[in-house]
Simulated scan of single mutants.
Amino acid sequence: MLTIGEFSRLTHLSVRTLRRYHEAGLLLPDSVDTTTGHRRYTAE
């Protein structure tokens, strides 16, 4: 599992863009911690 920062570096997308994509339903993280809101992504 990758943090949003790690996924950002690998995909060359900003963290802000990843958050907006998630909100729009375009690119969903594998999991979101309901307590902290931290997004986790897989390499797939």
Rank of each mutant, 00 (worst) to 15 (best):
R16M: 09
A43L: 08
T34W: 11
S31W: 13
A24N: 15
L26S: 05
G37R: 07
R16P: 04
T11R: 12
L28Q: 13
H38I: 09
V32D: 13
T42C: 04
G5R: 10
L13N: 04
R20T: 09
G25H: 11
S14L: 13
G37P: 03
D30W: 14
S14F: 12
T36M: 08
P29G: 09
V32T: 15
H12S: 11
H22P: 01
P29S: 15
L18H: 03
G37M: 15
F7A: 04
V15H: 07
H22K: 11
V32M: 14
L18R: 04
R16T: 12
A24C: 12
V32G: 06
G25L: 08
T3I: 01
G37Y: 08
L26D: 01
L28H: 04
G25E: 07
E6R: 03
L27I: 14
Y41D: 00
I4F: 03
L18N: 01
S14D: 05
E44S: 04
R9Y: 00
S31C: 14
H22C: 07
V15A: 06
H22E: 11
V15K: 13
L10V: 05
H12A: 08
T36K: 09
R9V: 02
L28G: 01
T17R: 12
M1K: 06
F7V: 01
E23Q: 12
A24I: 10
Y41S: 01
R16C: 07
R40L: 02
E23K: 15
P29V: 15
L10Q: 13
V15E: 09
G5T: 05
P29A: 13
A24T: 11
